[in-house]
Structure formats: structure tokens, C-alpha cells
């Protein structure tokens, strides 16, 4: 039994969006759906202005509000590693999970037309085949990679190594060490979701 999680070192993030693109490439997400967007916030005033970057993804919460809200039981948390997944064969597209998630991590996928011209290209067709129209979609922590012993695409792509992935329950893991040695914060702690993604400010 593991509890997979991620620590994101905000001081290292340069806002290059490589994680966002790597995720889209790995998962072939439809247009408009990004599992790992990087948010920006301008703080201060010229000449002391700067931009803060906030890389995000599904927080794979210990107490997922999406799972509680889902009327069909389509959302579950894997026992072996705590990854939260949507079963597209059970989802009825009520969007209850989308409203319930405080992080905006869930997306509604409607039937998509071709991006270029009238007909889909072969890669588009291949990528979209795995998405069921009318259902909710979310980051899977790259469960297909994790099952092969690999880290998620956003983690291996980050040029500054600001995303660190590992088992939060293993005291010897890098994520546990960082959480022990440095102050970390969770997003929207008021929502009481116990996220598995923590941030080092």
C-alpha cells in the first residue's frame, strides 16, 4: 500500500509550460482540456512587479470531494496507491464532480470535431478514441506509466525538476524528505480535501 503524491517547488518553476504540453502529448487530451495547467499571478507594482507561477494538476485528495459528489460511483480511489480515477463507462455526465472540485481539476468532454479541416487526422482519431463524449475527464497521475514503474509525464519533463513524485507514506522517499525538511502548503486547505499534492513556497 502506497500513497502516491507530488511536491512542487514553486521557487524552481519558471513557467515554461513544458509540464502542460508533456501531459497533453502523453494523454492526448482533447482541445481545451488540460490536466496540468500552469496558472499565473502578477504581484507588486512596477518596478517591483513579478509573476508567480502555480503548476497544477489533480490533487488526488485523500478525501476527494469529486468522489463524494459523483452520483454514479464512477470516481474511485485506487487502494494500492491512492490515485483518483474516473470510470468513463460509469460516468453519466452530471458535472457534479466538476462543481465539487475546489481545484478545477475535472473537465467535461463533449464530442469533438476535427481540429484541422472537416475530417480528423489519424493521430487525432487515435488520441480521442480513449475519451468517451459526455463524461468527466481528469489527470490520472499518468496511472498507465505508474503501473510500469515510471513517473508521470509532467515530472520527467520539467526542466527545473520542480515536480517531485513519490510515495508520501514511505519515510525514505524524496517527497517525504522534502515535506519533513521544508515548510509546505496545500491549496485550498479550507476545503478539507487532504490533497496529495503539496507546494513548497
Amino acid at each position: 500500500m502506497a500513497r502516491l503524491g507530488m511536491v512542487i517547488d514553486l521557487a524552481r518553476c519558471v513557467g515554461c509550460d513544458a509540464c502542460t504540453i508533456a501531459c497533453q502529448t502523453e494523454n492526448g487530451t482533447p482541445t481545451g482540456i488540460q490536466y496540468a495547467p500552469v496558472f499565473r499571478k502578477e504581484v507588486g507594482k512596477f518596478p517591483q512587479a513579478k509573476v508567480l507561477f502555480l503548476p497544477t494538476l489533480c490533487m488526488h485528495c485523500d478525501d476527494p470531494p469529486c468522489m463524494k459528489a459523483c452520483p454514479t460511483g464512477a470516481i474511485s480511489k485506487r487502494e494500492k496507491d491512492g490515485i483518483v480515477l474516473v470510470d468513463q463507462d460509469k460516468c453519466c455526465g452530471s458535472k457534479a464532480c466538476i462543481a465539487a472540485c475546489p481545484y478545477g481539476a475535472l473537465h467535461f468532454y463533449e464530442e469533438q470535431s476535427a481540429m484541422y479541416g472537416k475530417e480528423m487526422t489519424a493521430p487525432e482519431e487515435r488520441a480521442l478514441k480513449k475519451f468517451t463524449a459526455g463524461t468527466a475527464q481528469k489527470c490520472t497521475f499518468c496511472a498507465h506509466r505508474v503501473d510500469q514503474g515510471l513517473a508521470p509525464a509532467c515530472v520527467i519533463t520539467c526542466p527545473t525538476n520542480c515536480r517531485i513524485f513519490g510515495d508520501l507514506d514511505d519515510p525514505r522517499s524524496e517527497v517525504s524528505r522534502l515535506l519533513r525538511e521544508r515548510n509546505s502548503v496545500a491549496l485550498r486547505p479550507d476545503a478539507g480535501t487532504e490533497p496529495s499534492v503539496r507546494y513548497l513556497p
Binding site: 482533447p30 488540460q34 496558472f39 478545477g104 475535472l106 473537465h107 467535461f108 463533449e110 470535431s113
Partner: peptide
Amino acid sequence: MSRPANVFSENYSI
């Protein structure tokens, strides 16, 4: 083209 799928990532601002 479908409508924006997520209100959070529409303008990427916190």
C-alpha cells in the same frame, strides 16, 4: 470546436 471545458484554465490567472 467545443466550448471551454474548464473555467479554471480559461485565462490561467489565480
